[in-house]
């Protein structure tokens, strides 16, 4: 990356100046996020259609998700978005030490989320709620119950994969902050990282009520 920069300012040779570079990278990231919206949108569409066909089975299956853990993770993820936003702010002011600290906080909060998620998955496994030949469910015999768990694992699994990728990216940006790479004119990469992280947060903001809170009022 630094091979193409002039005098360590972070400017790639195809751009006139740092402002133009930031505009182009921000636009590019939003185009990437637009296709991410379509990708998760397909999963949400599948969820909506199956839920409309089998509302009772979905509500009953939803009871088997732990609302406390899901709610805790929601708070953790929104808090990580706050630290991410503060990290971008620190990069804008060229405070590399603060950038490192905020990104580290974001990284740790992301890990807390994933550890809680792992405990939830493990619990589902013990309960026999993994779709497939060993699936067992006390209560409704509607096969749509299994479809709910298919969608649950597909949606939260893809979300968790995005979190893991985000964590890896955060390590890279923490190293860059340690090298004092960022200054008032060059903070774009941290801002792009922030866009990705906030997007993953938004996906969870929709997943939490749709998956966890679905059948709460019947319980």
């Amino acid at each position: 990356m630094s091979d193409h920069s002039s005098h360590g300012s972070g400017l790639a040779h195809q751009f006139d100046d740092l402002d133009q570079q930031l505009d182009a990278t921000t636009l590019g990231m939003w185009l990437f996020l637009a296709q991410e919206i379509m990708f998760f949108g397909g999963l949400f569409a599948a969820y909506t259609i199956y839920r409309n066909w089998h509302p009772e089975a979905f509500a009953e299956a939803s009871h088997h998700l732990d609302i406390k853990l899901g709610g805790f993770n929601t708070v953790v993820l929104i808090f990580s978005s706050l630290t991410m936003a503060l990290g971008v702010r620190a990069a804008q002011m060229g405070k590399n030490k603060a950038v490192f600290n905020y990104l580290f906080a974001t990284f740790m909060l992301g890990n807390v989320f994933l550890v809680v998620k792992a405990f939830e998955y493990h619990h589902k496994w013990v309960e026999g709620l993994i779709p497939g030949p060993w699936f067992r469910f006390e209560g409704s015999t509607d096969p749509a119950v299994q479809m709910f768990f298919n969608l649950y694992f597909a949606m939260t699994g893809m979300h968790a994969l995005h979190m893991i990728i985000g964590g890896g990216l955060l390590i890279y940006f923490m190293v860059q902050a340690r090298k004092n790479r960022y200054h008032e004119g060059y903070y774009g990469p941290v801002e792009i990282m922030g866009l990705y992280w906030h997007f993953v947060d938004i996906v969870w903001i929709f997943l939490f009520p749709l998956l966890y809170l679905l059948g709460l009022h019947n319980s």
Partner: peptide
């Protein structure tokens, strides 16, 4: 919530 995140955080 999504709108607030997009408008302010992003």
């Amino acid at each position: 919530k999504a709108t607030v995140v997009i408008w302010y955080f992003m």
